[in-house]
C-alpha cells in the first residue's frame, strides 16, 4: 500500500482551493447554495465524480492517445455523472429535483476536467484518488459555508429546520431575501476570497 500523501488532501482545502483560488466551478456554487441540503448533496456528487474519474483516467493514462484524451475524459465523466444522477433520483428524489440540471452539468464542471488534465493524466491511481478527494472537499467546504449562510439568513432555517425562533420575527426580524438570490452567493464567495487573501499574503497577485 502506497504511503498517503496528505498534501494532496490538505492543499486544495486552503491555498489551492478550486473555488476561491483557482475560481473554477463558480456557476454551480451560485446555483445550488440557496439551501444547505442541495449544497451538501451537490458537493458529495461532485466529490464522487472527481474521485472515480481521477481513478479511472489514471489507470488508463498510459493507453489513452493524447490527441483524443479530452474525449476519453468526457466519456468517463459523463458515465459517472449519469450513474450519480440515477442514484440521486432513486434515493433523494426531492433534492434531485431541486438540483435539476446542475447534476448533469457536473460533466462540464471545470474542476473535474481540470483535475483530470492536470493531475490524473500524469500520476498514479492512488495519488489521483487522494487528489480527487482533496479537491472535492475543497469544493464542498465552500459550498457548505455559502449554503449555511444563505439558508440561515435567507430562509431562517438550516436543513429545512427552523432555527431562528418565532420571537425574533415577532420583534420585527425579517428574512433577507437578497440572500436567496444568486448575486449574494457571488458576494459571499468574494468575501471568503477576501478573508482568505488577507490571511495568506502568498495568494495576492501583486
Amino acid at each position: 500500500m502506497a504511503e498517503i500523501n496528505f498534501k494532496l488532501i490538505k492543499n486544495p482545502l486552503s491555498k489551492e482551493n478550486p473555488i476561491t483560488v483557482q475560481v473554477l466551478g463558480i456557476c454551480s456554487a451560485l446555483a445550488v447554495t440557496a439551501k444547505l441540503e442541495p449544497a451538501v448533496v451537490m458537493s458529495i456528487s461532485v466529490m464522487v465524480v472527481i474521485i472515480m474519474a481521477n481513478l479511472i483516467i489514471s489507470l488508463f493514462r498510459k493507453t489513452i492517445p493524447s490527441r483524443i484524451r479530452i474525449i476519453v475524459q468526457l466519456v468517463v465523466v459523463s458515465l459517472l455523472v449519469i450513474l450519480v444522477d440515477q442514484v440521486l433520483k432513486a434515493f433523494v428524489y426531492d433534492v434531485s429535483k431541486q438540483l435539476s440540471v446542475f447534476v448533469g452539468l457536473i460533466i462540464t464542471n471545470c474542476i473535474v476536467m481540470g483535475r483530470l488534465e492536470a493531475f490524473a493524466m500524469s500520476n498514479k491511481p492512488f495519488d489521483s484518488m487522494l487528489d480527487g478527494l482533496g479537491n472535492g472537499l475543497g469544493y464542498a467546504i465552500i459550498l457548505v459555508i455559502v449554503g449555511f449562510v444563505r439558508e440561515l439568513f435567507g430562509s431562517g432555517t438550516l436543513w429545512d429546520y427552523p432555527v431562528i425562533p418565532q420571537s425574533f420575527y415577532d420583534m420585527g426580524y425579517q428574512n433577507n431575501s437578497l440572500m436567496i438570490m444568486p448575486p449574494m452567493a457571488l458576494i459571499l464567495v468574494g468575501l471568503i476570497i477576501w478573508i482568505q487573501r488577507s490571511r495568506n499574503k502568498d495568494l495576492c497577485e501583486d
Binding site: 425579517q174 433577507n176 431575501s177 437578497l178 440572500m179 438570490m181
Partner: peptide, 10 residues
C-alpha cells in the same frame, strides 16, 4: 438597493 431587494416589505 440592498434594502429594496433584501427587505422588500419595508
Amino acid at each position: 438597493a440592498f434594502l429594496f431587494f433584501a427587505f422588500p416589505s419595508s
